[in-house]
Design a protein around this nucleic acid. Structure first.
Length: 358
DNA sequence: TGCGGAAGAG
DNA sequence: CTCTTCCGCA
């Protein structure tokens, strides 16, 4: 940002029509996720573009698969990226090389057979919190259900950095809003505090109340209070198979599988799994011992919309290393989504927020 | 088109 | 560490 070749194509510019009037939040540039100061990472950038309507002709989410996006205009994306990074010589060849590095980091993988199509590794679904539906101005559920292809459940990868998480949610919400023609005015993840990213090792989602840091996930009583920045998120469809937790609960998630920025050790304490549920999510059943159990995988089985089929999580090699695609578990969205029942009780749904893995 | 090694910059 | 740049290979 000092080279003067910033902006343009850089959504971070103030005043840009960010989905909710908020320029790309600070957290996207946090040192934790970006080496050496606030250098934006490519995947951040990609997400940025994906969120902006004006780039829809250049890059866009692909309907059909979760997290899949298509680079419609490789040269343009490269140009934008180059501009952002002050690398005038940037081209798609180079950019794609960078993207390929993400394969091994399990951030992305290539959608074979589809040109310029990549997919964020939203495998290993974990629960993504849904602050109350409609806490502020989010579109009503039916909107979500009405546009199935556009709202894939927020299936996020274990180890996904909260930044990505935010972005994804943001993106989904963007879509939702665009679709719904909604104009929400508030509520984006403004870099809620955080400032103190404390470099590495610090738990992200620093805006979480202390209580949430006790365990890998937490139920928020009042999202808008606890997680102001997320409170107004429009929740994507509920994944049919959620694994709430990460890190300590999934012993088999070796560091190599973590996403950048989340590979730091420590911090997230095992603590009480899901803290006392004050108001249990209706229709939810907690499987896998809240208390103990080998696998220690807490799964929430929400009302499963029929048609939602879920594949079991991929196993991690004993070695702990996964092939980029290995860890990708697809959850086929409502192929036969009969927009059915996402349940009327969604409004009572409590946010279950996975802390970043250590 | 896409992949991944190698070297190097910051 | 995250790319950037080059390049050979398929």
């Amino acid at each position: 940002m000092q080279c003067g070749c910033v902006a343009e194509g850089a959504p971070a510019v103030p005043g840009s029509p960010w989905i909710s009037g908020v320029a790309f939040p600070d957290w996207a540039y946090k040192a934790e996720s970006s080496p050496g100061s606030r250098q934006i990472q490519l995947w951040h950038f990609i997400l940025e573009l994906l969120q902006k309507e004006e780039f829809r002709h250049v890059i866009a989410w692909q309907q059909g698969e979760y997290g899949e996006f298509v680079i419609k205009d490789p040269d343009e994306v490269a140009r934008l990226w180059g501009r952002r990074k002050c690398k005038p010589q940037m081209n798609y060849d180079k950019l794609s090389r960078a993207l390929r590095y993400y394969y091994s980091k399990r951030i992305l993988h290539k959608t074979k057979g589809k040109r310029f199509t990549y997919q964020f590794n939203f495998g290993r679904p974990i629960i993504v919190s849904y602050p109350l539906w409609g806490v502020r101005a989010p579109p009503p559920p039916h909107l979500l259900l009405g546009a199935p292809a556009l709202f894939r459940p927020a299936v996020l990868p274990m180890g996904m950095p909260s930044e990505l998480l935010h972005s994804v949610l943001l993106a989904q919400r963007a879509t939702v809003e665009q679709l719904a023609g909604h104009q929400t005015t508030q509520g984006l993840p403004e870099a809620t505090e955080d400032k103190k990213g404390s470099g590495s090792g610090a738990p992200r989602l620093s805006s979480l109340p202390a209580a949430c840091q006790l365990g890998p996930c937490c139920l928020l009583g009042s999202p808008q209070d606890e997680l102001p920045s997320l409170a107004s998120f429009t929740p994507p469809l509920l994944p049919s198979n959620w694994t709430c937790l990460s890190g300590p609960f999934l012993p088999s998630v070796p560091p190599e599988q973590q996403f950048p920025g989340s590979s730091k050790p420590d911090t997230v304490l095992p603590g009480p799994r899901c803290p006392p549920v004050t108001r249990p999510f209706p229709g939810l059943r907690l499987l896998a011992g809240l208390g103990q159990g080998a696998g220690e995988r807490l799964q929430l089985w929400p009302l499963r919309p029929q048609g939602l089929e879920v594949k079991p999580y991929p196993m991690m090699g004993a070695k702990g290393h996964l092939d980029p695609r290995e860890g990708f578990s697809e959850i086929h969205g409502p192929k036969t989504r009969d927009k059915s029942p996402v349940s009327p009780q969604l409004e009572n749904f409590k946010a279950v927020w996975p802390l970043d893995p250590p």
